[in-house]
Design a protein around this nucleic acid. Structure first.
Lengths: 205, 205
DNA sequence: GTCTATACAAGGATAGAC
DNA sequence: GTCTATCCTTGTATAGAC
């Protein structure tokens, strides 16, 4: 038995039933090991959660960094958002409805949610500014700050809304839906070049 | 002991510590009654939640209905949103992070979340259309649909974001912050009359 | 009708044998 | 590294006093 196998099975169960509705005994049973053995790998259920959150966070960081290598354009930016949305969908079981993890985890300093949010906000601010300089967006400082606030909330909770409304949402459908909402918001601040770039990416809204 | 007293104390504790972190024994202790006596009034913890959700839903319905008596204007609409935001803040303990309540409760048909959302969406659609007819917004059908999607997600999760980021947010501060974000979004679709109305309401963004 | 005491089940967590 | 046994907390149900 390895940590990886356990996390894989755990994420699968969390996605299916929700974090709160999967017990350590059930997880152990699904892995054909004893509950005691499971706690040899992960002392607490919360440790499983934190490990998955770290996987998720690493994926997102990589996704963003590979975007930053590209030319800033609305099309590339929408590609980035789609990749991030796919990550979120993949980890929805640990992402949705865990109102407690930032609290618990922050207190124990395992996963500092507030500082993660601050870093992400700084990155998005840079991204929107660059899109402005590249002539894809027409934005002043206040617009950028607004777009950052928008993407922070929207990008954090679209999957929660989708899961609230439909326990087992269809991946491509929901991503298409929320990405098109995002594209429309982006178009409100886009130049003609930026609008053409959105059109080129090929999303309907 | 009355239901009202119990719900009041329960909401206070939920707001302070979060629904999941308040036990029935703790609630009983705070009320100076025995745990068994508490279950005389509310058989299950979930029943407490549903009762509070109903209180919350009734308040929101009343708030919206009193808005619908007024002249449609951006200023009145922002007033409505502030009132709704205040309701949400008041009930944040049952509202934030209960990813499960729509599922559990829908299955038992006590509180049909999906149909509540559908009704609210229809109401918002009507409100935005009226603001268009009143000359405060410049919107076509797609814009209205977009604004409805926006307000559904934004209006549902701003308080969750605020609570995630700060366990005990300052009421006036967070409401001001999120209302100003909303006002900015509204202004993107506003006519000059509509912009003047937002300005008259006196929110900075 | 109102309340207390108590028991039970489920789940997280731990100790220690092998 | 894996297991069994056990503890503790918490939601829940019930018997019965007044």
């Amino acid at each position: 038995m390895t940590d990886i196998e356990i996390l894989k099975k755990a994420l699968s169960l969390f996605n299916e039933k929700g974090y709160a509705h999967v017990g350590m005994r059930e997880l152990a049973r699904e892995l054909n090991i004893s509950p005691g053995n499971l706690t040899y790998y992960f002392k607490k259920k919360e440790d499983v959660l934190v490990a998955l959150l770290n996987q998720f966070s690493i994926r997102n960081t990589q996704t963003i960094e590979s975007y930053l290598q590209l030319e800033p354009s609305n099309a590339n930016f929408l590609r980035l958002m789609r990749n991030i949305f796919e990550n979120q969908f993949m980890f929805r079981g640990v992402y949705v409805g865990n109102q407690f993890f930032p609290v618990v985890v922050v207190e124990k300093k395992v996963f500092d949610y507030q500082s993660v949010v601050k870093k992400r906000k700084a990155v998005y601010q840079e991204i929107f500014s660059s899109l402005g300089k590249a002539g894809h967006l027409q934005v002043n400082d206040k617009d950028v700050s607004f777009l950052v606030s928008f993407i922070t909330l929207f990008g954090r909770f679209w999957i929660t809304e989708a899961t609230l409304f439909n326990k087992s949402p269809n991946k491509d459908e929901v991503i298409e839906h929320y990405l098109s909402l995002f594209a429309r918001q982006l178009s409100l601040f886009s130049t003609d070049v930026g609008k053409a770039s959105i059109k080129m990416y090929g999303i309907k809204f």
